[in-house]
Amino acid sequence: MIKKLTSFKEAEKKVFSKIDSYVKNKIKIVPLIDAINKVSAEEIIANENLPYFNKAAMDGYAVIAEDTYGASYTNPIILELSNDVEHGKAKKVFTGDPIPDNTNAVIMKEFCREENGLLEIYKTVHPNENVAKIGEDVKKGDVIINKHEKITPYHINLLASLAIKEIAIYDLKFGIIATGDELEDLENANLEKLKRTKKIVNSNSYMLYALIKDLGFDGKIYGIVRDDKDMLKEMIKKALKENDFIITTGGTSVGDRDLTVKAIKELGNIILHGVNIRPGKPFGLGEVNNKLIFLLSGYPVASAVQFELFIYRYFLKRKSVVLPLKRSLASELGRVDFVRVKIDSGVEPIRISGSGVITSLVKCDGYILIPENVEGYEKGEMVEVFIL
C-alpha cells in the first residue's frame, strides 16, 4: 500500500544517488569500434589540436597570399611550381594535404593554369583562405565527449582522429520480469484466443527491452510470473544472479493482487514507493542483495514514463527546445505532470490521456514536465519541450 507520495525531485535524487553508487563499479574500457551507441562513463579532453598541422581545404596550390595580390584574368600573376615554397613559388596540393610551413593560403585549381613548370594565377587569395588551420576543428583541452553522453559514429571519427583508441563505457545488464495472471506471452498470442480469454499480450517487456537496448545496455526478458508471491520471489532471485539491475512491470499499485512490493520487502527493502507524478504514480525502487530493482507500472504509458524519468534521464540528457504552447494545459499543485506532445512550429499536447493508451506514445515526439508548483500553462506560453 502506498502510504505517502514522494515528490518528484526527492524521488529523482534518491534514485539517481542509488544508481550512482552502483554504476561506478560497472565501467568497462572498450575499443572505439565497440563503443558505438554506448553511454560514455568518462569526460574526454582533446590531447592535441585538430588538425595538428595547417592543411589544404581545397584542391589547388599552396602559396604565399601576398604573391597573388592584384591577380585577375586580364592581369595573371605567374609563379614557379616547386616543393620548396618561397616568394614567387607555389606547390600543388590536394584537399587534406599539409601545406608548407611558410605558405598561408591555397588558391583553388579552377583559378589557375599550369604549364611547363609555371602557374598562371587569375584570382587574389588572402591569408588563411582555403586553409584548415591548426586547432580549427578542435583545440587542445576542449571537451570532445561528456560523461553520460551517447557515443555516435561522429564521436568515433573524432576520437580516432586524435589517436584515442579506447573509451570507458557503462557496461550494464537489465533483467525484465512481468507479473500478472492477465498477461499472455507474445509467442503464444492469438488474437481470437486473447479476445475470448480477456487476456493481454506482455507487450511491456518488449518495450522495456527496446528502451534498454536504445541506451546501449544488455537486456533479458524473463517472461511472465503469475500472481504468486513465492514464484515471483524465486524469479527475482534468479534474475539478480544474472543481471546488474532488475525491472519489474506490474504489481506496484494498491491491491491484493499486486504482489511485487510485498515480494521485494521479504527479500530486501523498499527504498521508495509512490511518486507524485502523472502518469506513473506507483513507481518504486527496491534493493535486494545490494542490487536495485525498479518497480514499474503494468500500464504501458506509465511504465514508459517511469523508465524515462528514473532510468533514461540518469544516463542521458534529453535535448530540449523552448516553443509556444498551442492550447492551454491544466495541472494540479503538488504533482508533476508528464505531458506528451507533438512538435512543429509550436507545441500541441496530445489529447489522448490515460496510462494505458499506447498510441499516445507512438504519436508523441516530445514531452513537457509541468512542475509541482505550477497549476498549468496558458495557450501561447513558452514552454520547455524535451525531444524524444
Rank of each mutant, 00 (worst) to 15 (best):
D258P: 03
C112F: 07
L240C: 03
V374N: 11
V341H: 04
G175N: 05
E120V: 00
G96K: 06
P51G: 02
I343H: 05
I78K: 07
L81F: 09
E182D: 07
V347L: 08
K238D: 12
Y377I: 01
Y61Q: 07
N188P: 08
K92L: 15
K55E: 15
D137F: 14
K213V: 01
S345Q: 14
D227C: 04
K26R: 14
T68Q: 06
R340W: 04
V339H: 03
K379F: 00
G286K: 06
N54Q: 15
N75R: 15
N47V: 06
N75H: 15
S320I: 08
K317A: 07
D20S: 13
R327G: 06
R196K: 15
T252G: 02
V341I: 09
K38F: 01
K229N: 08
K9C: 08
E381S: 11
F294K: 02
E66C: 11
K92F: 15
P76N: 10
A239P: 04
T197M: 11
V339A: 08
K238H: 09
M207Y: 15
T95H: 10
D137H: 11
G251H: 00
G223T: 05
E86S: 14
I169V: 13
I19R: 05
E166N: 15
I246V: 07
A11M: 11
S331V: 14
K13R: 14
S72M: 05
E375Y: 08
F111G: 01
K133A: 13
D344L: 04
E115N: 03
S253D: 03
I121K: 03
N25T: 15
P300Q: 10
K220R: 06
G219I: 00
I350F: 01
I19M: 06
S72D: 05
I293V: 10
K213L: 11
V106R: 04
I212H: 02
G356L: 06
E10G: 06
A105K: 05
A302W: 05
I358T: 13
V357G: 09
E384K: 14
Y22T: 14
N47E: 11
D142H: 10
